[in-house]
Structures are given as structure tokens and as C-alpha cells.
């Protein structure tokens, strides 16, 4: 608390050199993951579906297959890189969709109040009270599976949290001078909410996104582990663990490296999220 009060500025440019070691490590890990995801094709030493039947189930350490190979001789490192790309793509896409849906519904509730607000709050209660995994599995059972559907489905995860936050903040912002002023000037509701209220509550929403993001990674990897998420030949972190399970005794390295990646990534994002929350928005605690 004391360091927060004495901190001269919240600008990250100045705060960076003084980061606590855990935060710095987490930041480095997340940046590394993003770099790997973006430059996956350049980083992977082999194609992630390329077979090397002579080197099936090779243990880690070989110069050509640093993390070993799986039951078809596919390079675990290359598959890991491709999996990081897909898993992060889904998590980013889903988090953005969920934030968009939630914030929009929250603003609608704040703007119209009355029946609209009650319906949004009821849907939010409903979403929060049902286990998401069960709902997601039901939808997948009814509609089959594809990557866009999976991203859209995961995009429903956590929307109710943004909706509640956006509604609450928009209601209190609406009664403040600046919103009243632009309204008097004749600005349309979409302009008031999009250009004036949204930037003012963005930090809280961004903190919420960093808290939902790791949960999305866990949910997607859980679904993929069950064989109901990302489908082969595409691969994701949970997917690798799921298929590696069959070779747990003979080749545990197939599932260990994606497992470690899932754990470290969710841990790093959670640590960053907690830290951001403490710095930017103590009210969320």
C-alpha cells in the first residue's frame, strides 16, 4: 500500500526497471510465448505433422529432436510451437469476443435500465451458475466441431463478468459531469459510451481480461484434452497432453512439455493480472 501511495507515476515506461522479480519473469515468459506464437513457422525446426518413422518415441536430447519425438516420429518441439500458436490464438480470440459481448451487454443494461437490465442480469446469473464445461460440451454435441465454433464458444466464457463490471461502471460514470456534458452537447449514446465512458473504464476491463485469459487457456486445453476441442491434424497444448497420455509409461516427454507450458503460461498471466489489478484498480480485489 505504501509504495502505491508514494509511486510518482503509473506510466509503465518508468516502472519497468523496478519490477519485482516474479513479475519480470512472468512478463518475460508471456512475451516469449507471444513471440513463439507469432513466429511459429520460423521457429519450429520441423513441420508439426512431418513424420520421421525411423525416430519414433525418441527421448529428448537428440540434436535433431531436442524435446524428443512422439509415436509417429513427429518432433515434439515443433508440435509444441504449433500448439502454443493455436492455444494462444483461441485464448486471445475468445477473450476479445467475451469482453466485447460482455461490455456491450453491460452498456445496454446501463443505458436502457428497466427490462433490458433485468434480462441481462438474469442471463449473467444463469451463466455464472451453470458449469461452463457442461454447457460447452452440450453445444459441441449438438453442433459438431470446428475451429471458428470453438473460438466462438470459448468467447462466451466469462462474458457475464465484463457485463456486470461494465454495467456498474457505466451507471456510475453516467452520473458524472463529463458524460452529462457530452450528452448536453448532443452526442449520440454510442458516442458517449464508445468515446467517453469506455476509455475511462478500460483499465478495469483490461484487468478483468488478464484474469479471464488464463481460465480460457485452461478451459480450451481441458476440452482438447478430452478430444472434444481442437481436432487433429491441428494441435493444441491440451490436445498434445491428451494424445501423449497413451504413451505415459514409454514416452512421458510427449505430455510433459505441453503440460509445463500450460501451467507456466496460466501462472505467468495470473501473476501479471494480479499485479496489474493491485496497481491499476484496487477496487476489484
Amino acid at each position: 500500500m505504501a509504495d502505491l501511495a508514494t509511486a510518482p507515476t503509473r506510466r509503465f515506461g518508468f516502472a519497468l526497471p523496478k519490477l519485482p522479480p516474479a513479475i519480470a519473469l512472468a512478463l518475460v515468459w508471456v512475451i516469449a510465448m507471444i513471440v513463439i506464437a507469432v513466429f511459429a513457422d520460423g521457429i519450429a525446426p520441423h513441420g508439426f505433422t512431418a513424420l520421421d518413422l525411423k525416430h519414433r518415441l525418441a527421448a529428448p536430447g537428440e540434436p535433431t529432436h531436442l524435446l524428443g519425438t512422439d509415436e509417429l516420429g513427429r518432433d515434439v518441439l515443433s508440435r509444441l510451437v504449433a500448439s502454443i500458436r493455436i492455444s494462444l490464438l483461441i485464448a486471445f480470440g475468445a477473450t476479445l469476443i467475451s469482453a466485447l459481448i460482455g461490455t456491450t451487454l453491460g452498456f445496454l443494461a446501463a443505458h436502457f435500465r428497466g427490462l433490458v437490465e433485468q434480462v441481462v442480469l438474469m442471463l449473467a446469473d444463469f451463466q455464472a451458475s451453470m458449469p461452463f464445461l457442461i454447457m460447452a460440451l452440450s453445444v459441441l454435441a449438438f453442433f459438431g466441431n470446428s475451429l471458428p465454433l470453438l473460438i466462438g464458444l470459448m468467447g462466451l466464457y466469462g462474458w457475464e463478468r465484463y457485463a456486470r463490471i461494465a454495467r456498474g461502471l457505466a451507471i456510475s460514470a453516467g452520473s458524472q459531469g463529463y458524460a452529462g456534458a457530452v450528452r448536453q452537447l448532443g452526442a449520440s449514446p454510442s458516442r458517449i459510451y464508445g468515446r467517453h465512458i469506455l476509455p475511462n473504464i478500460a483499465s478495469t476491463l483490461i484487468v478483468s481480461m488478464t484474469l479471464v485469459f488464463p481460465e480460457v487457456i485452461l478451459m480450451e486445453s481441458g476440452l482438447s484434452f478430452l478430444g472434444l476441442g481442437v481436432q487433429p491434424p491441428m494441435t493444441s497444448l491440451g490436445n498434445m497432453v491428451g494424445y501423449g497420455r497413451d504413451y505415459l509409461t514409454r514416452a512421458p516427454w510427449i505430455m510433459l512439455s505441453p503440460s509445463a507450458t500450460i501451467v507456466l503460461t496460466t501462472l505467468a498471466v495470473s501473476i501479471l493480472g494480479d499485479w496489474l489489478r493491485d496497481r491499476l484498480d484496487p477496487t476489484l480485489r
Binding site: L218, S221, G222, V241, S259, I262, V263, T266, L267, I271
Partner: peptide, 16 residues
Amino acid sequence: VAGFTVPSFVLGLVLV
């Protein structure tokens, strides 16, 4: 924190 970030399928497989 570890209990939250380690998914149950990873923990289960490691225990196995």
C-alpha cells in the same frame, strides 16, 4: 496459486 494454475488432467497424469 499452483492448485489453480495446474489443470486437473495434468495433475492427474503426473500423479499417475
